[in-house]
Amino acid sequence: MFSYTFRRLLVAIPTMFVIVTVAFFMIRMAPGGPFDLERALPPEIEKNVLRAYNLDQPLWKQYVDYVGGVVQGDFGPSYKYRDFTVAELIGSGFPASFQLGFTAIVIALVFGVGFGSFAALRQNSGLDHAVMAVSMTGIAIPNFVMAPLLTLVFGVYLSLLPVAGWGDGALINKILPITALALPQLAYIARLTRGSMVETLNANFVRTARAKGLRERIVIVRHTLKGAMLPVVSYLGPATAQILTGSVVIETIFDIPGIGRYFVQGALNRDYTLVLGVMITLATLIIVLNLIVDLVYGLLDPKVRYD
């Protein structure tokens, strides 16, 4: 398992390299630059500024310098937040983003599996159909629609929750963004769980468990759930990726000081290093989380061996 983990991390290096390279040139292809203002700077000042950030060098030289810095863990200075390095900005945004994303995935998992199992155990009943219909809606509505809708209903009409803002991380400020982030994943996990549970409940080995005279609770918890969870665990990889990218939208809509908001602002400001820094952070997280998911899968399914 250690050698497998090591190999997976080795394979991640070229992946990261490709991501950095593509991202670097893509953001440079976008029109405009970090210091373009409505009123153009005097040429000599602009020249000085560009020189200060090494932006007057040929592009390939800038690329080599940037990659060299990243390899040493240096993401460079932000162009817009003058006194901060990109690493400092990401560090300051990380706690809010982490709380949001982590809570969302936990909620999606717990409630998704709960509702899905509930529906599977009452297969084809009215409740089953109701849960599935609601979750289909949850999947179909994108979070950039869901978030304003939630704001409108709970923030504006009912005035129960703040419309936006972080309020130094008060719980009441987190409810709407976490809900908006978790709902589509929750809905998908519920459907996945239901399908997989229904299939496992019909498996021969579950019939064997019943034939052994085991209590229904043991038949479900011990004999059915474990097998039924495998597709859900596989989905956690893509789910975390979607939560991470989804938080970019959600943080912007709810004005939350996380790394997602830095990403959007960085992209609009052509703050090249900030955009790339956030990109590398997200890519690393996705790769690592996918690796963890695969390792957990191996623990659950004895037929999977990593060596």
């Binding site: 052994k212 005279g213 209590r215």
Partner: peptide
């Protein structure tokens, strides 16, 4: 069910056709 569970598996037991799928693959 609970009365039946006191009989099946204890006083009468069943051996199934397909041993490949009738044992739980996830449990020792």
């Amino acid at each position: 069910a609970d009365r039946l569970n006191a009989i099946r598996g204890v006083r009468m037991a069943m051996i199934f056709q397909d041993p490949m799928t009738s044992l739980n693959p996830y449990l020792r």
